[in-house]
Design a binder for these strands. Structure first.
Lengths: 200, 200
DNA sequence: CCTTGACTTGACTGACCGGTCTAATACAAT
DNA sequence: ATTGTATTAGACCGGTCAGTCAAGTCAAGG
């Protein structure tokens, strides 16, 4: 029970790290097996295909994300607008830590996979889209609170939340291309300037 | 002369389309050769490696981009801030046209390749970074003009230009993940709300 | 003690990968 | 007509890909 779970989760952790640091196509099952010291057959006992593995990796990362990074950054004890700064900081330190260890900024696993796989795998696209939708909901909830508290003038919180998520992903994309986490720190705070008015 | 150029440019055009619509790793040289009706040997006569082909594709797209899309969108006869709206519209129609034909939004070739290749190929990363730098310059030039014309209060035009580029890439990323070009139209105009103040 | 079934092992498959090589061909200059 | 060069043709290379499979190991349950 513990051994079986261990094998599966070892595969999952390895795959997550490798997909994140490289790409889906560039990482082979054989390599994942070697690095997690598992045989091919064992791999296929737990995951019917490479696609299923990727789907599991996305779920796994989304779970950790929701319970760690996002839960802290969107801490409801903080004033709504400060949460955005916290989130930017969290993203920065995360990427910086990874860059310091690996030498390269891995960026956002979801963004990476989304651009690589959206045109090739509808199931994966839909799953990544759902992850983004949940992230947007976090932003929207924060914006709704800010508006209710009078910290922000009334706006289209749904559209603005989506805009903020897009901006965050864009910043990480650019930072990864520059291989420089500082970009997140420089551009991040401007996320609070984004605004989409209510249409009527 | 015309025939040789034709073979090379046929390879280039096919590769560009395929890399854009799928990904670098997913498209094989064999497939590119088949689709452009060229033999392997001819391919390697013109391009020493797949990496060189990708580099040439990036240059080719950047050239077309600078002369077409960007030149029109950043038309200096337009008031500076209107150029931003033009650019968003141009991005929308481009993606929509591709989505209508292919059924899927290809997104931005540069953004796609940047996320896929940045951690794997330093040469490609640097080239894509340079393309982004030039795009940022276009934004900065526009912002400088807007500030000079009094249409915008003084700001850190360099940082804001980078923020706008990040936002644009982020929008396209999200639109691609949703497979819905309309996202560009909804989120795009908010690019004008981005602002990074001068630090002092 | 025997069976069951989850798990592991590692050899194996056929397809495809990027890239090489030699020979044939087209064509321009002499 | 001949030679040199640019281009094309396509067989071929070793390696890797995702995935399969038959033969086990081993612990729990009857």
């Amino acid at each position: 029970m513990s051994a079986e779970t261990d094998t599966r989760s070892r595969i999952l952790a390895t795959a997550r790290e490798m997909f994140h640091g490289r790409s889906y196509a560039d990482v082979g099952i054989q390599e994942i097996c070697e690095k997690s010291r598992v045989q091919k057959g064992s791999f296929y006992h737990f995951f019917p295909s490479k696609q299923d593995l990727a789907l599991a990796v996305i779920d796994d990362m989304a779970k950790d994300w929701a319970h760690g990074f996002v839960a802290e950054a969107f801490d409801q004890n903080l004033p709504p607008l400060e949460r955005l700064d916290y989130m930017i900081d969290a993203a920065y330190y995360w990427q910086k830590a990874a860059a310091d260890i690996e030498g390269r900024m891995p960026g956002c696993l979801f963004g990476n996979l989304a651009l690589e796989m959206s045109t090739r795998d509808e199931v994966m696209r839909a799953k990544l889209n759902a992850v983004f939708d949940r992230a947007r909901d976090k932003f929207r909830f924060t914006l709704d609170e800010a508006v209710a508290a009078g910290a922000l003038a009334a706006m289209d919180t749904d559209a603005t939340a989506t805009a903020m998520l897009a901006y965050l992903e864009g910043i990480i994309l650019l930072a990864k291309t520059r291989n420089d986490p500082e970009v997140i720190l420089i551009l991040g705070p401007a996320i609070k300037t984004l605004r989409i008015e209510l249409s009527h």
